[in-house]
Simulated scan of single mutants.
Amino acid sequence: MPAGREGDAILELEWALEKVKVHGTDWRGVLLAETPLSKEEALRRLKDFETQAIQRVVPLEVLVRASFDEIADAVLNLAERIQGSFAVRAKVRGNKKLSQRSLR
């Protein structure tokens, strides 16, 4: 979402998902939304709902602290549920101790 439109995006999330808890983050234009709906149902509702402020939705499987060990543990736990190959992509923002290069 464009920075400064967080309030509009929160309203759109509440209208589309009904039961949602929205948290701000340290980054402008980035929100974290929690809902009791299944991932599939939440994505379907957002897709069917006409939004102006929400530009992109990224479903999360797990949320961990920005430390190499916690990320590695989460990846290994998720890998047990996945059959076949997978990729891990990390977007590092504002953490001086952790770089994308250290995740390779």
Rank of each mutant, 00 (worst) to 15 (best):
K39R: 15
D69K: 15
D8G: 13
R44S: 11
V57M: 04
D26G: 02
L60I: 08
A74D: 00
A79K: 15
E41D: 14
P59E: 03
L43M: 15
A90T: 06
P36F: 02
Q55C: 09
K21S: 13
G4N: 01
D69W: 05
V20F: 09
F86D: 05
V92W: 07
G7H: 05
G84V: 00
P2Q: 14
Q55R: 15
P59N: 06
G4S: 03
R101M: 04
V30W: 08
A3C: 04
P59M: 06
Q55Y: 13
R45P: 04
G94D: 11
L78D: 00
N77C: 11
S38F: 01
L98G: 05
I71D: 00
S67W: 01
F49S: 03
P59R: 13
T25R: 06
D73C: 03
G4L: 00
A3E: 13
G29M: 02
R45D: 10
T51W: 07
E50R: 14
P36I: 02
A72V: 10
E12K: 13
E61P: 00
V57G: 03
E61S: 10
L32Y: 07
L46H: 10
L32T: 02
R93E: 14
G24N: 13
V57H: 04
P36D: 09
G24K: 15
W15Y: 10
L76V: 04
A16Y: 08
N77I: 11
Q52G: 11
V30K: 11
S85I: 03
D26R: 12
V58E: 12
R81M: 08
D48V: 08
L37S: 06
W15I: 06
D73T: 11
Q100T: 07
K21H: 14
A16G: 06
V88K: 08
N77G: 14
L46N: 07
D73K: 15
L11E: 14
S102H: 12
E14R: 15
I71M: 01
S38G: 08
A90S: 12
